[in-house]
Design a protein around this nucleic acid. Structure first.
Length: 196
DNA sequence: TCACTGGCCACCT
DNA sequence: CAGGTGGCCAGTG
């Protein structure tokens, strides 16, 4: 019974996962075999299994391949502070038509949060409050929760969203990782706080 | 339905 | 400035 429930909560689509290794870190990207859009990106991991699992866990079926390794490599470059223009159209931002259908972005609210976040310029930051106000709501905390589930970290720069007092705030990969990405983009940080 | 839970915010000591 | 408190509100079960 347990297993059955876990199975039906997974997405019924096969994906291809490619992984690129650099500086002892693994970067993975998942592509849908039906839509050919990106359905998942992993934060840098020390182990390849962790890196793959971060994307594969939502899916019933996946296979490893080097087909999309250039995309994974590009993501590693962005992580290291290269300002690469990434086309949002390559990401699967679809939301489910009904509750029975599963997708990586689950609700319109989450989708809008991701789209607003994608507009934050390289080397700059915005606050959770700012994103909420752009959506016409006071759900500041819900913005944080939505970004915590961001299926496309690094490419959709949730690391550029910080607290109102300019403190770093939380991050799925830990606030140290968030600081590192921001520093790579040239942002000055002192004692967990953004300077200007 | 209703009561949690949160990558937050503002205000008060 | 740090820590506590009440307030938001989207998701979840």
């Amino acid at each position: 019974m347990e297993c059955f429930n876990i199975e039906i909560n997974k997405i019924h689509d096969k994906i291809i996962i490619s992984t690129y290794k650099t500086d002892k870190l693994y970067f993975s990207v998942g592509i849908s075999s039906s839509t050919h859009k990106i359905v998942g990106i992993s934060l840098p991991q020390d182990e390849i299994d962790e890196s793959v699992a971060e994307i594969s866990y939502r899916y019933l079926e996946y296979e490893l391949s080097d087909n999309y390794i250039e995309i994974a490599k590009t993501i590693s470059k962005i992580y290291k502070g290269e300002n690469v223009n990434f086309d949002l159209k390559s990401l699967d931002l679809e939301t489910p038509e009904s509750k029975n259908i599963k997708s990586v972005v689950r609700t319109p609210f989450e989708r809008e949060v991701l789209i607003q976040t994608s507009k934050i310029p390289f080397g700059d930051v915005r606050t959770y409050k700012y994103i909420a106000e752009k959506l016409g709501t006071k759900a500041y905390r819900a913005v944080g929760t939505a970004l915590g589930k961001n299926p496309f970290p690094i490419v959709i720069p949730c690391h550029r969203v910080v607290k109102s007092n300019m403190k770093i705030g939380e991050y799925r990969g830990g606030s140290e990782m968030k600081k590192e990405i921001l520093k790579n983009e040239g942002i000055i940080i002192n004692e967990d706080r953004i300077i200007n």
